[in-house]
Amino acid sequence: MVEFWVNVFLVALLVVITFYIIRLKTLIAIVALSGAYSLTAAAIFVNLDAVDVAFTEAAVGSGISTILFLAALRYLPLEEAHQTRYPRLSLSLCIIVGLMLIIAAFELPNFGDPNAPAHLHVAPRYIEESYPLFHIPNVVTNVLASYRGFDTLGEVVVVFTAGLGVITLLAGSTLSMRFVKIENDLDKTNKTSKEDA
C-alpha cells in the first residue's frame, strides 16, 4: 500500500514539474527542471521495481543529459524570444487526443494486475529458465545480453552512430574551415591568373 501511494505522489510531482516547464521562459531553468524530472522518474522506476532502469535514468537522464544541455546553452541565447504559436489550437488538439487516449487507457489491465496478458507468456519463461541455464541471478542482464543480444547490438550501433553524428557536426568545423580556405586560395589564384592574362 505504501508503494502505491508513493507512486501516486511521485507521478503527480512529475506532472507539476512538467507544468512549470511549460510556463517558464528561461532556458537554464527549463534545463534544470528537466534534470529534476529525470531524477523523479528514476525514483518512480525504483518504486516500480525497475532498478536497472532507475540506475540508467539517474546516471544518463539527470546527469549526462543535463550537462550536455548546459554545455550547448553556452553558445545559445538564454531566453525564449517569441510567444507560443496558436496556443489555443494546439492546447485543444492535445486535450482532445489526451481524452481519447485516457478513455482507451481504462481498457488496459489494472495497474499491477498479475494476470495481465503481458505477464503470462514470455516473462515467466525468462524468470524460470534463466537461472538453471545461466547461473546469473539478474534476469535483466540475461535478457539484455543473451536472449535479446541482437536488440542490444542494434542499440549500441545506434548510440555509436549518434555519437559519430555529433562529432562530425561539432568537431568537423576545422575541416570546413579548411575547405573555405581552399576555396579562397582558388579564388585568389583565379584572379591573379586573369590579371596575368
Binding site: 507521478v11 546553452l73 510567444q83 486535450i95 485516457i102 489494472n110
Partner: peptide, 29 residues
C-alpha cells in the same frame, strides 16, 4: 489507473511544447 492517466497527461504536455513553442531547446526538452 493513475499511472496511465498521468502518463497520458505528460505525453500531451510534451506534444503541446513541441507543437506550440518556438524555441528549439524547449522543443527538445
Amino acid at each position: 489507473n493513475w499511472n496511465f492517466i498521468a502518463v497520458i497527461m505528460l505525453m500531451m504536455a510534451g506534444l503541446y511544447i513541441v507543437i506550440s513553442n518556438q524555441n528549439f531547446i524547449k522543443k527538445l526538452v
